[in-house]
Nucleic acid binder design. Structure first.
Lengths: 171, 171
DNA sequence: GTTCTGGGTATGGTTCACGGTACTCAGCCG
DNA sequence: CGGCTGAGTACCGTGAACCATACCCAGAAC
């Protein structure tokens, strides 16, 4: 993204983007991040992507205590990230499980980006614990930054950040 | 991603991915998320992407108190996301500013994915406050999930999640 | 009717994040 | 010399997040 006060010769200051002049709240990055914060919320969403659906499975996989997990599942269903679906295993009473909604599933690009980033920049001795591949072709899954015209974006300098309709002038 | 206990006809249970059998810690998604948690860390990283570099600017843009901001900047430089660079404005003493490192800049795909997600699913009355476009072509910036062979990935069902080398069998 | 299981609620305590405010410290400026 | 500015540090209070543990409740199984 274009940065003001640029000092590298390859970057140029953009008069339309004077960060000081604009109030950028509510910020979309922050609002999205608030879905995955606190830590326990991120853990629950991650597990949902790994296929976990039931209370006790969430509890064992995340290590959260019942109280915290219960609160988090309530929050996330309240936000429409998860939804409660009834099921009935034969030989036990009817219960319900938590599944990702379309809204939740659409976090995939963010989750995958984070997973790729950690695999690259925070490697662990044993290697990654989860590997994502393209079903059928078997190649690794990754995310790519592109524009709506499908041009690839290789550097932050190719991205123009500008105040949108929701931005207001400071003071 | 493939999910066990799948009930939709389009999903199929994958015997290689029995979530119950595997211990997936340390989890890459969680480790990446921990860089952006607590909330104040996410705010600082977001501002860094918006071009903020100096202590007082971070303080005003994020609303964080000096103590919290100071701690967060120390954490993030310690993790190699930001780096301190000396500068010297004429007429004032030499100081230093905080810039994104390559490691920090590589969070771009995650940040952009989150921004796009919030713009789609958590719209605000006034519209987005920040709009990203492709410099030159002007089209909107977005992220895309692809495989290493460049096949597009349109649904989670196209993604195969499998335990990696770092995973261990439970008990 | 007692037990088992899944899915929670209730209570209590600790740590951490954060806000508010005051203070410091170094150098340039007048 | 005293004041101003940018960049912090120090201290204190509050609330949120989290953990541990105990308990509860419905229905099926025995």
């Amino acid at each position: 993204m274009q940065q003001p006060r640029a000092q590298e010769p390859t970057e140029a200051a953009d008069p339309a983007w004077n960060r000081e002049a604009w109030l950028l709240e509510p910020d979309s990055v922050q609002r999205a991040l608030d879905v995955l914060v606190p830590r326990s919320a991120g853990q629950v969403v991650r597990e949902a992507f790994y296929g976990t659906r039931r209370f006790d499975d969430f509890r064992r996989h995340t290590g959260l205590t019942p109280g915290v997990l219960s609160a988090r599942l309530r929050d996330l269903t309240g936000q429409g990230i998860l939804t409660k679906v009834a099921y009935h295993d034969t030989g036990s009473r009817g219960r319900h499980e938590y599944r990702l909604t379309d809204k939740g599933r659409d976090l995939a690009a963010a989750i995958i980006s984070l997973l790729n980033w950690a695999d690259r920049w925070l490697p662990t001795p044993g290697g990654p614990t989860v590997v994502l591949t393209h079903h059928g072709c078997g190649a690794a899954i990754r995310t790519e930054i592109r524009c709506a015209h499908d041009h690839p974006v290789d550097s932050l300098g190719d991205i123009q950040a500008a105040p949108g309709p929701g931005a207001s002038l400071r003071d």
